[in-house]
């Protein structure tokens, strides 16, 4: 199997007080090794649920999730996660926050090597000089950068991000897109990025998966055939505009509204 991430016919329902709530209903996603899959969909359709299934934090009611040729049944050390909330630990310095996953994944790794790895990553995202600071001393964008470093410090095969830039202002967000693009060139992960920003999905994604409204299924897959080393300018080309237009129409359909007549 060539695809590092393979999601086949996944269904899932939450048990709630008012009976089962179907959230995912027939989800199919394939992400080849090294590629970047952006997932968009209406609010509450089940995107975060999808990340928890891929991470092995939950088991789907039906269907299968495969990572690197193995069926996911429980959490695995080869996954990294980042959320909208950077969830940094206030009692640790930025450096020690980034090191945290190594303490679990590589307990035998010498402290010196851990520090070197974390420092290299922090430098890559522009946080050199902030290693000893506490999370509360950093801006929101800087915290999110540190959170990204923590998500990839243990060189995961799969990086799962749930709206990591959702709480940032537009300029900071675009800065982080570029940071993400640069990290991708140097680190070997395959990524799933949940987002509600269509421009973000086109700028970072190799493919954009549109989910339908709840219960979500794969409604549309858009292949982003733009060059790998994109700049923000690419979003202002005709090609990108057409893709954004397609995605917008698809979201409208997902929300149950007819696309506007062109």
């Amino acid at each position: 199997m060539d695809n590092l991430i393979e999601i086949r016919g996944v269904r899932h329902a939450y048990q709630t007080g008012a009976g089962p709530l179907p959230v995912l209903d027939g989800l199919d996603i394939s992400v080849p090794k090294g590629e970047f899959c952006a997932v968009v969909g209406p609010s509450g359709c089940g995107k975060s649920t999808l990340t928890r299934l891929v991470a092995g934090l939950m088991k789907p009611d039906a269907g299968e999730v495969w990572l690197d040729g193995e069926k996911v049944t429980s959490p695995r050390k080869t996954v990294g996660m980042a959320f909208q909330n950077p969830v940094l630990l206030e009692w640790r310095s930025i450096l020690d926050n980034v090191i945290l996953p190594l303490e679990i994944v590589a307990p035998a790794m010498p402290r010196r090597d851990r520090v070197a790895r974390a420092e290299a990553l922090l430098e890559m995202v522009g946080l050199e000089g902030f290693e000893a600071k506490r999370p509360s001393e950093l801006s929101g964008g800087m915290r999110q950068r540190a959170s990204l470093c923590r998500a990839i410090v243990h060189k995961p095969d799969v990086l799962i991000m749930d709206e990591p830039f959702g709480a940032l202002d537009n300029f900071t967000r675009e800065d982080l897109w570029q940071t993400m693009r640069d990290l991708r060139a140097k680190e070997p992960f395959t990524a799933v990025l949940i987002t509600h920003d269509l421009r973000e999905s086109v700028f970072l994604g190799d493919q954009v998966v549109v989910l339908s409204g709840r219960p979500a299924r794969t409604q549309h897959i858009l292949n982003v055939d733009l060059p790998q080393d994109r700049t923000i300018d690419v979003l202002y080309t005709q090609k990108a505009a057409d893709m954004l237009h397609t995605l917008r129409d698809q979201i409208k359909i997902a929300q149950g509204r007819a696309p506007e007549a062109a």
């Binding site: 928890r52 959490p75 695995r76 959320f83 909330n85 969830v87 630990l89 945290l100 996953p101 923590r150």
Partner: peptide
């Protein structure tokens, strides 16, 4: 917050 748990739980 569940995310705090999930940072480490997702690593097993």
């Amino acid at each position: 917050e569940p995310e705090y748990r999930d940072i480490l739980r997702s690593l097993g």
